[in-house]
Amino acid sequence: MKTLNNTISVEKLRPLIALFLLCVVLSLLSDKFLTVNNAWNVMRQISVNICISVGMTLIVLTSGIDLSVGSVLALCGAVTAGLLKNGIPIEATNTYVGFTLLGAILAGLVVGGLLGFFNGWVITKFKVPPFVATLAMLTIARGLTMLFTKGFPISGLGKEFAFIGTGWFWGMPIPVWISLIVIIIAFWLTTRTKIGRYIYAIGGNEKAAKLSGINIKKVKITVYVIAGVLAAVGGIMVTSRLDSAQPNAGMSFELDSIAAVVIGGTSLSGGRGAILGTVLGAIIIGVLNNGLVLLNVSPFWQQVVKGFVILLAVIIDKANSKAE
């Protein structure tokens, strides 16, 4: 396979080896690990993180960051669930506008896109650092979620909706299908299109990109919109699987997705990295979580282990880029 450049292909191999070793060790330690059931289980669990991490990768490649994905995910899930269940009440006539399944999902995606647009607009228009702009959005979207749900879960959303998170199609869980489609589109976007090139160029050298006639603002806003929509996709999947929109859904999801991006070899300073690396990063985190559960490791220890894995990934990355 031809890659965007030589260094990316080398970086891609590293997480792959790590994943392989992890699987070998886990299958030796637990006889439940290497089963078909468990494999589907892991893949279904990571599909949400894959979706938001793909969006995160695009942002990180432009040397930005999005801390708001978890809150955006919660708000979009809640909006979809709320519209599906209650519609929009119209007080004057004491009636409500109902939403079909598709309409509610679309509304959730649009909300995600709008929140992403807002992030991108604040960052490009007012030159607010992405860290700060999306930190603000983190609490704004969480607050809106609380307002929208009044702090209570919205549950009982119907079998049809639940199918998205729990159903199977052609022998594969629906969430896995969704994440697969997201990966393919993002792969195409980053390796075959001009906006993909622009994303790498902006992260690598914004001034040079600007002097080449690239509309930096447009590209950046696009990237944040994509990330917002993907967070909404994740929100809809989470809500569907639980058959309930939780007001505190998606808490600290931004950390797992940044972890996936970093473990996948994408440089936090931008311009260097790849979608497939992030996918591997997300799988590594998922397998690690699953393995620790199978081995009956306390959830508290799981967090500690995950933290060290992230550190290890970054340290190896630093050591390698120095060697270059």
């Binding site: 965007l4 450049n5 030589n6 260094t7 090139r197 622009y198 790498y200 160029a201 690598g204 050298n205 001034k207 040079a208 990109a209 002097l211 080449s212 006639g213 690239i214 311009g271 260097r272």
Partner: peptide
């Protein structure tokens, strides 16, 4: 600083 994206290859730089 202004002319090239040093971390990208020649082809990508030239066709931006």
């Amino acid at each position: 600083h202004d002319g090239l994206v040093l971390g990208l290859d020649i082809r990508t730089n030239m066709t931006l």
